[in-house]
Design a binder for these strands. Structure first.
Lengths: 233, 233
DNA sequence: CGGCCTATTGAACGCTATCAATTGGAGTGG
DNA sequence: CCACTCCAATTGATAGCGTTCAATAGGCCG
């Protein structure tokens, strides 16, 4: 495996403190395992323990395999994000590319051993983990207490915040994931996802462009449909 | 508010490194807000930001309020556990006592400012947060891809690991939460929870003792019913 | 023992899954 | 550039699981 210099630099810029000594910097680099992951290909850490993964470029999904043909997408990740892949427990986890990706993976135990005296690194990691936890909890709420229509609205609003592009005053999404991915993320079937999107289109809330393009005409209406807590007072 | 000396000591034993200087120790103590929380009472952090909470004694639930009468329990906590309460976002969160509790709460921002150069503290916190994340992801899988029967089995197995007591070779649970709590945690209704428990009782997998006692006669059978990934070679 | 509230049990409805057929987008080769 | 192919996505019809509504039973506390 090649020494991943440039990808690692990107990782270091985001996660490692600027004042880190060269020695420690290179130790972290020595732990990094870089991979180029083509669209639809996946990284399987079965056998290995918990991993820390950095998405240098592209977009990924973290998939939990509950049983044959019953997958749950735990989270999506986009370029520049760091996340933790659990070691196998009651389920097995894998990371798949939604489009061609550059990935940096670290064995979590090794990484933490090296970082154990680097408060700056730990602090960044903690913030990232807390953000993941917050997102996971919001997903829990959606899966536990929301209808299909609400879940789709939540999904679109969330994607708008993360990868939405403003164009002519409207918010445009270029979704890297398929309908199957969306359904596996929201605990629904592709058919239900499709039906709900059609409904939103019929209601004029969104427009669809090809398979992956979505234009949000009425973000406020989407928020209303998401079943979020009303901002009282 | 009284200075919480003894509860804080318990927190320190678990989270703060042993070699912490007295100065820093007392600074952390100054941040701690202790409360005695009677059963069914709740701590509301509305207005405040993210919190870090330590359960000195008792058991709690972290509840997200999606809308009126639509609550989702995000996680249960037992004595000795630390967890993060999100600041309000799309939902509002509160912590409720399942039984009489002693609680220690910290404002997360203040806590992290103080801990930012204490690698040992950050490391503990990171490990706790990662564990919470793992549990939350497992819950996501359950809510997204499992039937009512499977969710109940997952719940019982999980509780067995956390608060199960071996007695005469059988695992005995004394559940501190009501059926409503269980249903709010699993994204079901109390009726469905009740029906599934009755089914397990009819099948001889569990026995119930009063409202809160559950005896697990066949943990293996429960595991099978939980829909976990088969340990394939 | 009596009252209250939680839990259980039953019947009917509704949302989403499932099964099945059709449409259409994107890539390929002529 | 267009026709062809393949597979994702859409749309329709039906079935099933869990919810909802309603009534009864039972644990727990005074």
């Amino acid at each position: 495996m090649i020494t991943p210099a440039e990808p690692f630099q990107r990782f270091a810029n985001r996660i490692l403190p600027a004042n880190l000594s060269d020695t420690v910097y290179f130790r972290f680099q020595a732990l990094a395992r870089a991979s180029r992951l083509a669209k639809a290909h996946s990284l399987d850490f079965a056998g290995a323990g918990q991993q820390i993964v950095f998405v240098v470029d592209g977009a990924t999904k973290l998939v939990a395999h509950a049983s044959e043909s019953r997958d749950q997408i735990v989270a999506f990740q986009f370029a520049g994000e760091v996340f933790t892949v659990p070691g196998p427990d009651n389920y097995s986890y894998s990371v798949s590319a939604l489009k061609d990706c550059d990935i940096l993976a670290f064995d979590s135990a090794e990484f933490l051993r090296l970082a154990s005296s680097e408060a700056g690194v730990l602090h960044h990691l903690l913030e990232n983990t807390t953000l993941s936890l917050r997102r996971c909890r919001e997903k829990t709420i959606a899966l536990g207490r929301k209808t299909a229509g609400e879940r789709i609205a939540v999904f679109l609003v969330g994607m708008a915040e993360r990868i939405g592009v403003e164009q002519d005053g409207r918010l445009v999404l270029e979704l890297p994931m398929s309908r199957r991915d969306i359904s596996d993320s929201l605990g629904l079937t592709i058919e239900t996802v499709s039906r709900q999107l059609s409904k939103l289109r019929d209601d004029g809330v969104i427009e669809t462009v090809g398979r992956s393009g979505v234009i949000l005409n009425a973000l406020e209406s989407l928020r209303d449909r998401a079943g979020f807590l009303r901002e009282a007072a």
